[in-house]
Each structure stands twice: as structure tokens, then as C-alpha cells.
Computed example of a mutant assay.
Amino acid sequence: MGRIVYCNGVFTPEEDARISIFDRGFLFGDAIYEVTAVLAGRLIDNDLHLDRLERSLAALSIPMPVSRAELEQIQAELMARNELAEGIIYLQVSRGEADRDFLYPEGLKPNFVAFTQAKKLADTPAQRNGISVDLTEDLRWARRDIKTAMLLGQVLAKRQARTDGYDDVWMVQDGLVTEGSSSTAFIITADNRVVTRPNSRSTLPGCTRHAVLRLCQTHGLRLDERAFSPAEAQAAVEAFVTSASSFVTPVVRIGDVAIGDGRPGPLTRRLQSYYIEAALGSVPALPG
């Protein structure tokens, strides 16, 4: 039997799941999504992800498709049915379906789908060895704080970076780094200050970012929430990115400049360890 997915109230084999061609997520990208990591059979930072899902839906005036408790039950059921020990759970809520029109009718019923993806998240080659990131102009829409399914800008930027020999890309607007194409950008200065841009409409409020900032406070690390330029990033002694599916991943090259000695730095290594320890030590495993 293949993967079991959730589609509008029904758990079903993936090949049997159906969404209308008139779904506004399909026609307009009028949809919100979330990704929660699963490690050792545990949902990681799930409360933060569900908080953000609710905020994003509210920002677009899309109602929650089910209660939060029901949503958590759906996640647990997907993990159990697919025997997911490590990977992600993807959630997507669209405004619903109606004949194509920019002005949607009131009272649409949201479409809600969810599925698992089994994949290795911890101790990956990228986390062990670090990644290279290119720099590109940020051409996305202004409300990046809402986690919508409109990801074409990121798709094109990632594709071009890979074509040019990089692992990923950082976006730049008005001479300052906004964020990675699907991650939060961090640098570490020569005096061991952890620096990342503050939350605003220009960036997605990353859940893993939030967890890492909390770890900085817990372990007494010096933290600056401020914007930084590509030049400052290239002059940093260390750099890294955070996301739900990559945790804390070192960045060893930005553009054509090696960061530090071109290898993951010691403070990034500490944050990697702190994050995994906190995730596995504080999050109870769901019944399976």
C-alpha cells in the first residue's frame, strides 16, 4: 500500500485524493501552507507552526478548516498510518472552490489537504559540511510574513542558484539580506554575536528561527535582531540558515566568498546540538 493522505475529511491513498480544478489555491495561489518536521517519531516545534498557520489564515480571512485539536489528531493519524519516524507533515488550506473570478464569493468552504514525506532531516551532508548560497534580488510580493502557497519567486531563485553551482540562495532588497529562499538567514560576527533580521512584513517569521532565538537566550549567547548587508554577511566569521526541514544548517560560502575558513564554525555547531537536544528532550512523542 502506498502513502495515505488526508483530503477534506477523508484519509485515502494518495492516488485517490482529488481537489477541484476550480480550487482557488490552484487558480490563484490563494492558499496557506505549513510544514512541521518529524524526528524520532516526534513533531518538532508544532505549536509554533500551528500558531503561524492560524495567523496566516486570519491575515487572508480564510477560516480554519477544522479545530486545532482536530488538526493535531489528523497529524498524529497521518504519522501512524504512514509509519513516519523522520520527515515532514505538510498542511495546505485554500480558500475553497468557485468559478474563476478575482473577487471570490463569501462563505466558501476551505479545502484542506495534508500529507507526509519521509526524508532524512538530521545529520545530513548539508548539516555536516555546510552549504553555499548565492545572492539575488528579492522580487517577491510585500507580505512575506504570510505563508502563502505562491512560491514561484522562490522556485525560480532556487533553480537559478542550483544552475550556477550553489546549494541555495539569499534574497536581497534595498541593499540588505531579507531571508533565504525557504529559510531564515543568520550570521555570526567576529565578536560572536548571532545576527538575524527582525520579523516584519519583509520576512516570514520562522518557527525554527524562533526556537533558535530562544536557545540563544537560554545559553547566554549574544543576539542582535537587525538587518545586515551582503558585504557584512561575506565578512562574517560564521553563517547559517534555519528552517523546519533543515534545522540549523551551516553556510560556508556566500556568493564567491568563503565564510571563515570555509568550514562550519564552532558556534554554529553548538547551536545545531542545542536545537536537536531541545527538540528531542522537550517534545513528547505522539502515540502511534
Rank of each mutant, 00 (worst) to 15 (best):
F240V: 05
R52P: 02
L152N: 04
L271P: 08
A236Y: 00
L39H: 11
L221V: 07
I259D: 07
D261I: 04
L223I: 12
R209G: 15
I276W: 10
G206A: 14
I21E: 11
L176T: 11
A149C: 15
S181C: 13
N192G: 00
R140A: 11
S94M: 03
S67C: 10
D256N: 13
N46R: 11
A235S: 07
G220Y: 04
A235R: 04
E70L: 02
V237W: 01
V133W: 00
N199C: 01
S243K: 03
E232G: 00
P105W: 08
G265D: 03
G87A: 13
E14H: 10
I21H: 07
R222S: 15
M1Y: 03
R42E: 03
G265T: 05
F11D: 07
A285T: 14
L50M: 14
G180T: 09
L57I: 01
R100H: 09
I88H: 00
I188L: 06
W170H: 05
D256L: 09
L221H: 12
N129E: 12
A239M: 01
Q173C: 02
D123V: 10
W141R: 10
D145W: 02
E238C: 08
K120D: 07
L60N: 06
F26H: 05
E238N: 11
R95K: 11
G175N: 00
E86L: 08
L176M: 14
V237P: 01
L151F: 07
V212F: 07
R222E: 14
A157P: 10
H210C: 07
Q117S: 09
N199Y: 03
R253S: 04
G96D: 00
T242Y: 01
Q234G: 07
S182P: 10
R24H: 04
R159F: 01
N129A: 06
Y275S: 13
K120N: 13
A211D: 03
